[in-house]
Design a protein around this nucleic acid. Structure first.
Lengths: 132, 132
DNA sequence: GGGCAGGTTGACGTGAACGTAAGCAAGACG
DNA sequence: CGTCTTGCTTACGTTCACGTCAACCTGCCC
């Protein structure tokens, strides 16, 4: 059930991307759908990777950074040096995300305060008599 | 002290941007430095706005979205309708950021787990005798 | 008064991440 | 048999956020 193969159209509908996008990600070696003849078929693994890709994009990572991160999620037959390198860059990304998390917390508080200030001004103006 | 005017070069050094970037933001109406003759001079307000701009960019907002947000931080003589509209879009941005915050938390946990898994594999491999 | 550092405008170039369009193949349908 | 849909490849176009470059002004120093 969960390892159902999906066509490109099904993938597009499920993830709200275009075929162009999926082919583009494949060209950049972010996903590796099988082929049935000429047609692409996406399995559970491809869907998991696409989920991570879209998530990474929302955090502002480049496709290349995401590609490196995806290596971490593939316990394939990489050698020690490659695994260590992957861990390296992943730690960097993690640090980025932790920084972003902290800053986002501040920014959210900031924005909430600004919004309620503005709401206050709006309410005040409502009770005043405008001079014009 | 805090309302010192700064030249474009001083701004660039302070914020690690290029002159081109500052002029670009000005063209997009994100900052409004004074002019001394032809030369630009940036005050405390410009610096505050630039801080918010760069922050917004780190969260993946477009310059246009940031421009709208900046209106919220300027209690200038806008009319009720404009203030209300600004609050509207700001609430949308806030919602974006809250979503991002929640998702980021998940992604960080995810990534941490993947990294320690990979570290585990690395350690395991160190203790094994490689077949080759 | 010549030159030069620092700033200005304007036009064009660039890289990332796709969009769009043209043209072909292959299975489904009536 | 034609044509419709779906997907494929190739190639060029687009948007955003700047970078790069040319040409000009402008103090200011020697």
């Amino acid at each position: 059930m969960s390892d159902t193969l999906m066509t490109i159209r099904e993938m597009c509908d499920a993830f709200e991307v275009t075929p162009r996008t999926l082919r583009f990600y494949e060209a950049r070696e972010l996903i590796f759908p099988q082929r049935k003849g000429q047609h692409r078929l996406y399995d559970r693994r491809d869907r998991a990777r696409l989920t991570l890709i879209l998530r990474g994009k929302r955090f502002g990572f480049s496709l290349e950074q995401i590609r490196q991160l995806l290596e971490l999620y593939e316990p394939g037959g990489a050698n020690r040096t490659q695994i260590a390198a992957t861990i390296e860059v992943s730690r960097d990304r993690l640090a980025d995300m932790e920084r972003q998390y902290a800053e986002l917390s501040i920014a959210i508080d900031d924005l909430r305060r600004q919004i309620s200030d503005a709401e206050g001004r709006l309410a005040a103006e409502t009770n005043e008599q405008p001079t014009g």
